[in-house]
Design a protein around this nucleic acid. Structure first.
Lengths: 193, 193
DNA sequence: CTATAATCGGAAGCATGGTTCCGGTTACCT
DNA sequence: AGGTAACCGGAACCATGCTTCCGATTATAG
């Protein structure tokens, strides 16, 4: 049943209907709702396992000897994953709105590490921070969820262009300063408090 | 009343409730629904005028003597506009999903012109097309609608990074080929037919 | 084999938010 | 001033989709 939920959420995004999930799983609606407190709970359960997969991907990338390729590999593979898991893409797209979760923090930490190493290796510009990468990935995630399977080539180009913007040797300096995930979270809590 | 709708849509996005619009306009819900066929109609009416504003911006940019600065000016000012009109940002973010409208086509034409001129001037890479720009702007629009007013500096940096990715002198060639809006539309209709 | 308990399925309940409708009011014309 | 017609307001209506509940079914233990 959890597999069915994952499949349906993957295809239709977070807006998928419970009825569809139940039908796909070959059970009744009531059965779904008894096993999970709510639709939100079911979604969280599915997303948790997807987070694990992505964290695995990030750590696989981190094992790559070349930090530049490690970052690029992850940055390119993540949208591929979005494409196959639409609900996860939406989650990543809306991530900034959500409260912190352990698994989410773990992913953020891995991304931070990828960024730092790539910067140390001189592969990507040093005036950016994890928060910038997060926001860019959010935009990529959205674009992917929107038109990904319709225009796979366009999606891939989109990723490459953004990636180029992150490389070293840009023409103009960025305004402001780079900001970490921790700072971003603090600022957010401060702003909405 | 239309002004009230514009204000509410600007603040709350396309999900704004009619009741709120009515209250802001100082009228009843019924009055709103009599003047416009549906919520969708009201939204379209508001968006139409916003499209006009943006087209004006694009044409102002086109009047700039330097094509490079013209493109940059527009590309930077558009997210500013998104920030002040959240529903419009959402519309731009979801644009690929919608049927073509005259006013939309007009904007697309202006963007295409800005791109072509900037490319001719050697300001931005020649292996991209309007469809690429549209997808990037969609991502930027989403990121803006999501976290724009919370992290203005982050938003501005986001735009600048993407813009850098569009500049000439990138490290690796893009896969595939550039595609125009017309081709994008055709491909879309073909895919969903 | 039968009684009981757990689980299942779908229909009824509930919440949200857009749409419609009818009684009241206001403005205008004679 | 009086009558008529248009317009306004909000309450009732309807559609959608999550949640809950109860009768039916199946598994299990004595």
């Amino acid at each position: 049943m959890l597999a069915a939920a994952e499949a349906v959420f993957a295809e239709q995004g977070t807006g998928a209907q419970i009825e569809e999930i139940a039908r796909r799983a070959g059970v009744g609606v009531g059965t779904v709702c008894r096993h999970f407190a709510s639709k939100q709970g079911l979604l969280q359960a599915v997303l948790a396992s997807l987070y694990e997969s992505v964290i695995d991907q990030a750590e696989t990338a981190l094992a790559h000897p070349d930090p530049a390729l490690a970052f690029e590999q992850f940055f390119v593979s993540l949208p591929d994953f979005y494409l196959r898991h639409r609900a996860f893409a939406e989650q990543m797209a809306n991530e900034l709105e959500l409260a912190a979760q352990p698994v989410r923090d773990q992913l953020m930490a891995a991304i931070s590490e990828l960024v730092t190493r790539a910067q140390a290796a001189g592969a990507i510009r040093t005036d950016i921070g994890p928060a910038d990468v997060s926001m860019l990935l959010s935009g990529v995630a959205h674009a992917t969820a929107l038109a990904g399977d319709l225009q796979p080539m366009l999606r891939e180009r989109n990723v490459r262009i953004v990636l180029d913007g992150l490389r070293r040797g840009s023409t103009a300096p960025l305004p402001g300063r780079s900001v970490s995930f921790a700072e971003l979270r603090d600022a957010k809590q401060h702003g909405s408090r």
